[in-house]
């Protein structure tokens, strides 16, 4: 993807999109106890410390569960797959699933973060969001 084709992150506080088209999901890490949170928090609910730093999460995780959504709001074209992916930092993040037939998705599949076009802003500029797709060779 060329730099000019990279849209702005659909939610900059939760998804960092760099000019080269790579990116990471953002969250918080507690400097006191090491707990991780998605999205960014102001204080740790484990130890109540407010010493939280914003961190980039890993891009590889495991599918915890999923559903094929067949009725949704007008903003989303159905059907689409939605899943929760567990990441090594100890966070579970929901996202749509792409790159696989809907009837081949299985709990426990290794998944990777995938930056993809995700709607437009109010002025019609393309936005970049995230989906999860099965890891290569899976």
């Amino acid at each position: 993807m060329s730099a000019s084709a990279v849209g702005v992150s659909f939610r900059p506080g939760e998804l960092e999109v760099r000019p080269d088209g790579t990116g990471n999901q953002l969250g918080s890490r507690c400097s006191a106890c090491g707990a991780h949170f998605f999205p960014v928090r102001e204080a740790c609910s484990g130890c109540l410390s407010d010493q939280l730093e914003t961190v980039r999460f890993s891009t590889e995780g495991t599918l915890y569960t999923f559903s094929i959504v067949r009725q949704s709001t007008p903003a989303f074209e159905v059907p689409y797959a939605l899943g929760y992916v567990d990441f090594p930092e100890g966070v579970r993040i929901m996202g749509q699933i792409s790159g696989i037939d809907l009837d081949e998705i299985k709990i426990g599949m290794p998944m990777v973060l995938s930056l993809e076009p995700f709607g437009e802003d109010e002025e019609g500029n393309p936005l970049t969001g995230y989906r999860f797709r099965p890891a290569e060779g899976n």
């Binding site: 559903s67 959504v69 949704s72 709001t73 929901m94 749509q96």
Partner: peptide
């Protein structure tokens, strides 16, 4: 923002 509906959360 990524397409969650109440039924889909319970479906999962």
């Amino acid at each position: 923002a990524v397409g969650a509906t109440m039924p889909s959360v319970y479906a999962m």
